[in-house]
Design a protein around this nucleic acid. Structure first.
Lengths: 194, 194
DNA sequence: CGCCGAGTTGAACTGAATCAAGAAACGTGG
DNA sequence: CCACGTTTCTTGATTCAGTTCAACTCGGCG
């Protein structure tokens, strides 16, 4: 159950067995149904979530419309980072797109871990670095790529995204209309047949 | 000379006079001509820059073309954050768009300050938070706004950007073609006359 | 003077949005 | 298990925003 998480952390920073044990002792495991809100905009994020199975969607309201800001797939985290770290109201809401198994760690618990072992500080940093970098890449993708290219890039990264995420949510993440994404998808299928 | 910087820092975290003195003692002041490279892509960022006057442009190469990632105007910082903090090669280059007065602080010096007073850690965090948030807003702007709206937003934030930044650089920052930006600008002027 | 980079403008084209209608998939209650 | 409404997806027709290509202007500078 915790293996995915430990593996993921190892890609960031090496952990010794006692650190792993310490972490696992403090993890909270939960299985929640589709459409559960993990956080509502305006509230303060009290947990970091690690997705074992399922998908988390992060979104916010802009000009009355929902805009998808992020998807968290298995073996990745969902962290409204600054709300969690600095106890501020979150812009984003988090909701489950499927029944999901999650590991979570509360702000209080993480504080405790941070005070006992500096390795958690490093992990924290590395995670922040990863998300910062992917935000930068996302900006660049809007600067230089067309809708079609952005769509193809995300398919490359997450070949199974179509089955997990609805058309409308993906379109809003990519910054294009639902109809355009549907047509891109159709063209893609046609090409595949030839 | 250092007032702008101190004011800016006060918006992040309150500083007492001795902290201010400590900082000023360690600042390096320099006046550099237009087109000076502060950092070339692939190198490690050794300095944080604070712009007193002038403009810094950050850009990277994507598919053979230059893409502008950031402008740093007076009273703001230019920090290739992760390159500076974790001593990694930078994706971005930094170049001066005008003769500029800069304040800089080296990685070594900042380490020294950090070790002596926790307030610099807080400032560091708050800065990171600001840049992270503005990156998020930038992504959202691409998701929901048209070229025209993005152009108007940046004009609102930096009314004098047209005089400081060339058309091509601004267009690449906004993710639109130079011709389109020129037309937007022309339409805007016409409207202003009526 | 003539060149060069930066900006403008026009015309044709194209990618993507919008509007509108219908098809498919899905959940819920009878 | 089917009938229903609801949401999700597809498809077409039209419009529009933005790109591309190309020619031209303007100001600065050797």
């Amino acid at each position: 159950m915790n293996e995915g998480l430990l593996q993921r952390l190892h890609t960031l920073v090496p952990l010794n067995p006692s650190q792993e044990k310490e972490l696992c002792k403090n993890l909270h495991q939960e299985t929640l149904p589709k459409n559960t809100y993990l956080l509502e905009a305006g509230g303060v994020a009290n947990y970091i979530y690690f997705v074992v199975s399922g998908v988390i969607r992060s979104f916010k309201q802009v000009e009355g419309k929902e805009v998808t800001t992020w998807f968290s797939f298995p073996n990745h985290f969902a962290v409204p980072y600054f709300s969690f770290a600095y106890r501020q109201p979150s812009q984003d809401s988090l909701i489950l797109l499927h029944d999901s198994q999650l590991l979570s760690i509360s702000h209080k618990t993480l504080d405790y871990l941070l005070s006992r072992d500096k390795v958690w500080i490093d992990i924290n940093r590395r995670l922040l670095e990863e998300y910062y970098t992917s935000l930068q890449n996302r900006v660049t993708s809007f600067q230089v790529q067309s809708a079609k290219e952005r769509y193809e890039s995300i398919l490359k990264e997450h070949p199974d995204i179509e089955e997990k995420v609805s058309l409308g949510h993906l379109a809003s993440y990519l910054g294009i209309s639902q109809e355009t994404l549907s047509r891109l998808r159709a063209r893609k299928k046609k090409k595949a047949k030839i």
